[in-house]
Simulated scan of single mutants.
Amino acid sequence: MRMTVPTPLGDIAIRCYGAPGAPALLLLHANPGDGRDYDAVLPALADRHRTFVADWPGYGDSTVSEPRLVTPERLVAAAEQVLDALADEEGVREVSVLGNSVGGYVACRLAEGRHARSITALVLVDPAGFTRRTVLTRWFCREVMGRPARARRLVVPLARAYLGRLGTSSARATYERTRRLPGDVRRLAVHCAIWRGFADPDFGLADPAVLDVPILLLWGRRDPVVPAFLDGRRAQRHLPVRTLSVLLPTAHEPYNERPDLFLRHTLPFLKDPRAVSAGRLRPSRPRRR
């Protein structure tokens, strides 16, 4: 089943899988990309959950009205409208949110905002929002990845690095979609607008340590975009102490590179996320390499 959620940024396309009575799960993808990036793990997730897969504005089957307005903060507002629509049209009152990169950032912001009581668990996969903000990082976001003339030369080699070994059909399909990005003016404009948004003064989490929701933090040891030894450790320091943290032998998208390993950690957590808060699951910390 498909549904469309109108937002000021464009119409967000949602694909719906699984039994209507199953626990709800919302998947939020990275930049660039679309909901198909989760195809390798979707069957296993949808077998246990009513799974909703969103495409950000301008990506996948979603439309975009003004690409330059698609910032991380506006994606948060759009995701809130998605949750409103799921409640109104699907009767979803409680939902777990799984997000990668900017999708992980949006997931955290949802758990901070007006929908906090409806969020039952977060699965954060190499999430944005934990990079130390410096003159250099702001310059890179604005003037390198935020400028189409420069980004179109870098987006494909960067994807080749953060997707890892391309050993699965899903990773190769994601890479092929990214290879078409430099020739798509509107998608490239969305990609750059999100990157510029990472340097905006209003970008950032209020206080991740007080998030009152079970959290599974998954981080790829070989992630070249948000490195585990910097951003991953910073996330661990700032998230609640009962966050279940797992370091994986992957790059930026473990669900693409090692779907079996990703599911091995994700499915048990989603089955009983409150076990983390109750202390029945012990967080594992990354080891120094």
Rank of each mutant, 00 (worst) to 15 (best):
L216G: 10
P157Y: 00
G104Y: 01
V41R: 03
S118W: 05
R187S: 12
V102E: 13
E257Q: 14
L110G: 13
R288A: 13
D11P: 01
T63R: 00
P249D: 12
A116D: 05
I14A: 08
L261N: 05
S169P: 13
H191W: 10
G33N: 05
V185F: 11
R280S: 14
D184H: 02
R160G: 14
Y175N: 03
R187K: 11
L154A: 06
R258A: 12
D47Y: 08
G279P: 06
V97W: 08
P214C: 01
T131A: 13
G18A: 05
R114F: 06
V190E: 12
R187N: 06
G197H: 09
T174M: 11
V106F: 06
G129L: 02
D231P: 11
W139P: 12
T174D: 11
G167M: 12
A206T: 15
P182I: 01
H252M: 10
G204Q: 00
R274I: 09
V246T: 06
A77M: 13
G10M: 00
G183T: 03
G279E: 05
G91I: 03
S118F: 07
I12M: 15
W195P: 11
L244N: 13
C141A: 15
G104T: 02
A111S: 07
E253A: 15
R68K: 13
V97R: 09
L211D: 09
R133K: 01
V155D: 01
A111I: 07
G232N: 04
R36I: 07
R234T: 13
D212H: 04
G204L: 00
P259T: 07
T137R: 03
R132N: 12
R222A: 14
V226Q: 15
T63C: 00
P8R: 01
T7M: 04
R114W: 09
L188S: 08
F203T: 04
R282V: 15
A209E: 06
A111C: 03
V225S: 10
E253W: 14
D207T: 05
W219M: 00
A128T: 09
G113N: 08
P8H: 00
V53G: 14
S284F: 05
D200Y: 14
R153G: 12
I14W: 06
G58N: 08
L28M: 08
D84M: 07
A228G: 15
L124V: 00
S245F: 08
N100Q: 06
P157N: 02
V95W: 02
P286H: 04
R287V: 10
T4G: 07
H252I: 04
V225R: 09
L247C: 03
G129T: 01
D200R: 15
V5R: 05
R68Q: 15
E176M: 03
G18V: 02
G167S: 15
V95K: 00
Y105K: 03
S118E: 09
Y162A: 07
V135T: 14
H115W: 12
A85Y: 04
